[in-house]
Design a protein around this nucleic acid. Structure first.
Lengths: 196, 196
DNA sequence: TGGCAGCTTATTGTATACAAATGGCATTCG
DNA sequence: CGAATGCCATTTGTATACAATAAGCTGCCA
């Protein structure tokens, strides 16, 4: 993506995620253009993308509003994400390479290190966790699936932080990763999907 | 969507689906603009959308090409579609209204009429079939799910025709619809998903 | 002859001006 | 007083000109 367009996209997106742009509020192209220091053209591009990603809604007369997700929406996204990740795991089980398996093991070990200490290193955990999942998605080898997962993984950022900082969940998550690795070792797609 | 933009989108999309634009061939914004009788601006919008829908790919320097799906891609899309539709059916089972159930029954009856005659009326069958599925997606009440299904249902149009004109498949399809209706009646999401 | 440098051309990105459409407000008529 | 209608302001859509970037070609040099 080119410079102005990318700046506009990142700016607007982060303004939405940070709450700087309030959910439900109308957004005008020109105002955003000024905020981002670009013209309306790249802003329009960004708005279209963000609309596709459901960060933005448009009413019937094409005016844009910051999306405000209901609890139902978040639950819905989470459900979809779970299903898509399960599917990714199933596909990955039969396609994953030795090298990818090795990377998975590496990140899982780092994961374990991050929480098996008196003061858990949560950012480190999240980082390796992200890599872990990314490798699985890559191993699933479906662009479509990857793009769909992209659409649902980033949405509930606000809530996610709260949940992920719970140490017990982190431990459980690590345990699940262990089980996933075994399933991958056995190339057992159904098991992998079930764990996810 | 506004007039010029919509024209561009529909034109380009149908040119891709009809093969008028050959898979793998490069497409230039200006050429499309002339073909559609609009300026590059709405064409660019359309290309962005079509790229998101994976009808178009871009190389690293932003040049656009008509996507050419491999058999793997089509299979992948089909797999995803099956999974998403199963999920839609599951959600629909617990949310469908009496009115929607009635509509489902109506279309199913029409479906049956269309193929239970000496000369099956295939277009009619496909039309009611489409409505049937649309109602289920609507009953699932998940915008996200609907938009994802939109992304995978239209892709393999080329192959779909061949398969759908097979009378035996039409009959089986109708039978499955019957079973789905029973599952919905019982509000049995798992059953509905399995049928799908 | 092969490959690289620089230029030329083709293509996309951005800005801006203008057109179209929509919403809101005020005025008027019942 | 309420509703409908017409006008004005605001916002988005489209076209076009220009800028930036990448690809392809030509000619030079090893």
């Amino acid at each position: 993506m080119s410079r102005a367009s990318e700046r506009a996209y990142n700016n607007i997106r982060s303004m939405i995620l940070s709450g700087e742009l309030q959910p439900g509020s109308q957004i005008r192209e020109e105002a955003l253009a000024e905020l981002c220091g670009v013209s309306r053209t790249p802003v329009r591009d960004s708005l279209r993308r963000l609309e596709a990603e459901m960060f933005i809604r448009r009413n019937d007369s094409q005016r844009s509003f910051v999306a405000d997700w209901s609890l139902d929406d978040l639950e819905d996204a989470f459900q979809l994400r779970a299903m898509l990740e399960a599917h990714a795991a199933k596909r990955a089980a039969s396609r994953i390479t030795r090298e990818q398996l090795g990377q998975l093991r590496f990140h899982n070990a780092q994961l374990k290190q991050a929480i098996d200490i008196p003061n858990p290193d949560v950012p480190k955990f999240l980082d390796h966790n992200r890599h872990f999942h990314a490798i699985i998605v890559a191993a699933a080898a479906s662009e479509r699936l990857a793009s769909m997962l992209g659409q649902v993984t980033e949405q509930p950022v606000v809530l996610r932080t709260a949940r992920h900082y719970d140490l017990e969940n982190l431990r459980r998550s690590h345990h699940d990763h262990d089980e996933l690795l075994i399933a991958f070792d056995k190339r057992d797609g159904e098991w992998a999907a079930a764990v996810m």
